[in-house]
């Protein structure tokens, strides 16, 4: 299964980007193969509106079934739910830490957005 993690850099050791729609990168991690890939999100980063919705579309297209991020706003959460993507909020420092917490079952699935849009 693929999981998307919002990241400030392109490696597993990069810091988590606590924003979802305007995250700098998405790290797509495959839990079966343990392979990871960094996807640039620069286009959304500069989008005045709808960044969360576009980001949700983007990670859905990349095949992610779960998302680990700092915070997620209401429009993004609706789009992610419609795409069947589960959301996990975390305050972990790095992408790797977040993935380890997720795999250890220490992250709980979010039932709703945890911040307003454009927080």
């Amino acid at each position: 299964m693929k999981i998307a993690v919002t990241s400030r850099g392109t490696s597993l050791d990069s810091e988590i980007d606590e924003r979802f729609g305007r995250a700098r990168y998405f790290i797509i991690y495959d839990t079966e193969t343990e392979a990871s890939q960094a996807v640039d999100n620069e286009q959304n980063l500069n989008s005045p509106q709808g960044a969360g919705v576009q980001a949700a579309e983007k990670i859905a297209k990349l095949g992610a079934e779960s998302l680990i991020t700092g915070h997620c706003g209401p429009k993004a959460f609706r789009a992610l739910s419609a795409a069947g993507i589960k959301v996990y909020n975390t305050d972990a420092d790095t992408v790797k830490e977040a993935i380890d917490l997720y795999l250890a079952g220490k992250l709980s699935q979010a039932n709703d957005a945890d911040v307003e849009g454009h927080w």
């Binding site: 509106q49 709808g50 919705v53 576009q54 949700a56 579309e57 859905a60 429009k75 609706r78 789009a79 419609a82 795409a83 069947g84």
Partner: peptide, 18 residues
């Protein structure tokens, strides 16, 4: 192009504010 209507999964989802 404003992502006001997305179809991530079988049915469109609307974001009228966009």
């Amino acid at each position: 192009q404003y992502h006001a209507i997305i179809t991530p999964n079988a049915k469109p989802v609307l974001f009228p504010e966009l």
